[in-house]
Structures are given as structure tokens and as C-alpha cells.
Nucleic acid binder design. Structure first.
Lengths: 254, 254
DNA sequence: GAAATAGTGTCTTTAAGACAATATCAG
DNA sequence: CTGATATTGTCTTAAAGACACTATTTC
């Protein structure tokens, strides 16, 4: 077998020898989205998890968690490992969004990154957020309404006006993906603990989609995708609401 | 700088040295879809371009065109190069579908492949198809209607019942993606030469989507996305139809 | 009973599906 | 004029939006 060559030596592969190909570094980035109970306007709102970079390029800047994929590791596994190792968070079910392949996107070399989105209830982020100062939840800017000439879909903390690399684009893709899924099904990201009332479900959808959903239309759309459970009584002030769970054919269980 | 290591030597990266990471081979696969004038039932129908493999694994079997990404090459560029080099075809605008990252998907080693879809008018495939016998257009099986116990969405030529690797899955994703886009906009793949009549447009949509579109509903949906052109007279037998082009805000121009 | 929230009824508006009438050409 | 296709009108049906009414609890 031929010896492994340095990447970029010979563009012509020796047949049968995979290692002869120049190979890129493979990375993942992940936009962890959640709903915070108090957004900028007091109502629940979408937010994204940011991490202060300590590594080489753009050290000190806020960006999305990401890392290189290890040998024979699955992409989803790399995302979950990154969240666990770098953020102390147990993620759930990463979804692929897009591959960013611009050869000039990283000064360090040829890095191809697969962008992901994951959705996590805010309770699972709070311990890590409270314990560390290099983690932050940044609110999603409500569509083009962004301070000054910032082009980021995120209200980045501090003086920073945008996210490094393609992270602004990744957040935009992640938000679009999540909104599309929340228009079609009840809480596909598992943000609401089961069983839940229709009010809790609708408040979450309002926050994700960014605008209030019609009470009755929303009920009629989502009802066929839910199964009833029991009753809630204590706690609320008005008439007790029925409790529901996502129908079995629905997506992942939180 | 540290010497490049063989992939798989050290899973712990030396900080600052990108080359120290084990790196996968990066590949692309592409499902080239088109509409052939005479499908299995005589009507125009969707088909996918297959290539007979000559390389190492599954040599002789029909599969999708694909190849390894070269150094600093864009993914879309690798797709277009593959179509040009291996199929003698000039592709148009590849779209990413999904990253296949199962470490066991290729016996030769750690290969991560980005699946793509591209849409090409059949006229641009015909010269290559006529000149070579390792290229074929396979009809898309109309939803689950597949000979015997075949699980492939493709009617693969010969005795083959499915495509190698994840190619069956790629074709299914490609067809779903194309159908979704054709439900929303007039001929986003540029299959019909401009200017076109409503009949030509609808026949193409019928073929892509796999079932006939309502004549009047289709017209009402697509009309706002088109701009008028002139008139057609010669050729047809009935009343001449107006000619249209895709509206400027539409997608790529063929 | 008053306040608050849950759940349902129904009217209006909009869009799709279906069918058919009218328009305009070649022969 | 006949046959063929294009284009438009309209009726029916289904769904969404909007509004309001009734129901059931806590205080």
C-alpha cells in the first residue's frame, strides 16, 4: 500500500488508495435554539446558545459551538460531543442544515463544516449558563429589526455586530427550519414538558414562530396530532384545561 | 510545524495544527433528474441518470455519478466536474440534499459523501447517452410500484434490484426535493425552453410530480409567477396559446 | 357574583376542485 | 363549418380567519 501523503501533494489519486486523496478537515457547527420565558419584550422568545471562543481564529468573539469531527465519528455524534464537552449540555437530536465549503472560510486551512440545528428546553441549559461566563443565550432578532447596521439575525452580546465565519447564516437557516417545522406539527422540538395544556403549547409556538397564533385555528390544526391525557386543575385561575401529549406517530420524545 | 500524521493515528489533535486531525475522504454523489418525453406509460416522466461503475467497489453495477472532492474544490464544482468528466454532460446548478456519514458505508475507508440533485433538460443528455453504453436513464418508479421485492425508487436496468451505497436514498431525496419545488413555482429546474405555452409547462409539471395537475387551478397558481411574451400560432392545431417566461425574481435561467 | 381562562359555534373570506361555456385558430 | 385547443367564468367545497358565545374554575 502506498504511504499516506501530505494533503495537497498529488491531486491525481492513485486508484484503490483512498489515502492518496487530499482530504479536508471536517467540522460541525451547531445552533442550539431554545425558548426563553422572558424575551426582549417580556414575552417568551427564541434564543440561540453562544459560546465565547478561546481557540485560534477570532478568539474572544461570541460564536456557535463547533468542533472537528473525529475519526469514524458520526456527524450527529460530533455535535452531541461538542455540546457535552464544550458547553456541558446534553443535546438531543441534531438535524443537518447545510454544508459550508468555501475554501476561504477558515484561515487555518481547508475546513468543510456541516451546520446543524438542535432544540433544547431552556431548563437543560440553565445550569451551564449559571455556572459559566463563556456561555450566553442571545435573543433572535425579530426579522430585520436589528440594532444599527448589524446584519446578524442575532442580538449578539457586547459590541459585536455579527457572528464569525458563516454563523449568521447558520442561525438564519436554523430559525427558518425550526419555524417551518413548528407550523406543521405540535412542538416537534420537544420544548414543552408532557403532558401540556393548549395554552402552553400555543405560547411556545408563538415564541418560535415569532408572531401570535390564532387561538381557535391553532387548536383545530393541532388537535388531530395530539392525544388526550387527563385534567389539570390546581394552579391556574380560570377553567382547568385538558392535558395532551404528542401523538405517537409524532417526532422524538423529550 | 508538526509532521502530517496518518489518519487515525492520534485522535487527540495538537492545538493549532489542523493537519493533526484525522480527516475523512470527502465525496459527492449526484442524482441528475430529467423528464423524458416517453415514460413507461407513454407519457412524459421523470428519470434519473445512472452510470455503470468501473471502479473498485461494486464494479459493473449501475449507480449515481460521484467522485472525491479535490483539494480546495467547492462541492458544487466537484459535482459539475464529475458530470463533465465521467458523463460528458454539462450540469447546471447542483443543490445539496444531505450528508451521508455512516462510517461503514464504504468498505474502502472513512468516506463522507454529500448528496446532490441537479436538473437537466433531456436534450443535453442525449448526445452522451447515444454515444456511450455505460450511461442510462432509468425511470423513477411511481411511488412504491416497483417490480417484485425491489425497494429502490428507480427501475434499475438489468437484473439489479437496487442501487449501491445510499444511492436509493439519494434518489428518493432528490425526487422529493424536486417535487416540492415544482409544486411551488413554475419549472424551477429550467426543463422547458423559454418561452413556453401553458400546456408545455403543465405537461412538465405533470411528469415531475407524477400525477396530472388541474388545468385551471394550475394556471391560476402559476400565472402570477410568469411574464407574458408574444403569441404562438404555427404548429399547433387548436387555438394558439400565449407564450410565457419565468418571472425575473424566479430561480436560475436555463 | 366577578374575573379569568377553556372550549365551541358560526359567519365571512379565500382558495381549491370541478365543470362548462366561450374564444380562436387550422383545415 | 368542424375539430381542436386556449382561456375564462362560475358553482361547489374545504379550510382559514375572525368574532363571539358558552363553560368551568378560583377568589
Amino acid at each position: 500500500m502506498a504511504l499516506p501523503r501530505t494533503p495537497g501533494s498529488s491531486p491525481v489519486p492513485a486508484p484503490g488508495d483512498l489515502l492518496a486523496h487530499p482530504r479536508p478537515s471536517l467540522a460541525i457547527d451547531v445552533a442550539v435554539l431554545t425558548v426563553v420565558p422572558e424575551g426582549p419584550d417580556g414575552a417568551p422568545a427564541l434564543a440561540v446558545l453562544l459560546l465565547r471562543r478561546d481557540a485560534a481564529p477570532k478568539a474572544g468573539a461570541w460564536g456557535l459551538p463547533g468542533s472537528f469531527v473525529r475519526e469514524r465519528e458520526r456527524l450527529a455524534g460530533a455535535v452531541l460531543r461538542t455540546l457535552a464537552d464544550k458547553c456541558g449540555i446534553s443535546g438531543l437530536a441534531p438535524r443537518q442544515l447545510h454544508v459550508f465549503d468555501d475554501p476561504g472560510r477558515d484561515d487555518r486551512g481547508w475546513v468543510v463544516s456541516v451546520a446543524h440545528v438542535d432544540v433544547v428546553p431552556v431548563e437543560r441549559l440553565e445550569p451551564a449558563l449559571a455556572a459559566r461566563d463563556d456561555l450566553a443565550l442571545a435573543p433572535i432578532a425579530p426579522r430585520g429589526t436589528n440594532g444599527a447596521g448589524a446584519t446578524s439575525p442575532v442580538d449578539v452580546p457586547g459590541r459585536q455586530t455579527s457572528l464569525p465565519f458563516d454563523h449568521d447564516e447558520i442561525v438564519a437557516l436554523a430559525v427558518d427550519d425550526l419555524r417551518e417545522r413548528y407550523r406543521a406539527a405540535p412542538d416537534p422540538g420537544g420544548l414543552v414538558r408532557e403532558p401540556f395544556t393548549f395554552l402552553a403549547l400555543r405560547r411556545t409556538h408563538d415564541a418560535v414562530i415569532g408572531e401570535p397564533q390564532q387561538k381557535d385555528t391553532f387548536r383545530r390544526q393541532m388537535l388531530p396530532l395530539l392525544v388526550e391525557d387527563g385534567e389539570i386543575a390546581r394552579g391556574g385561575v380560570g377553567r382547568p384545561a385538558r392535558l395532551y401529549r404528542r401523538a405517537a406517530d409524532g417526532p422524538r420524545v423529550g
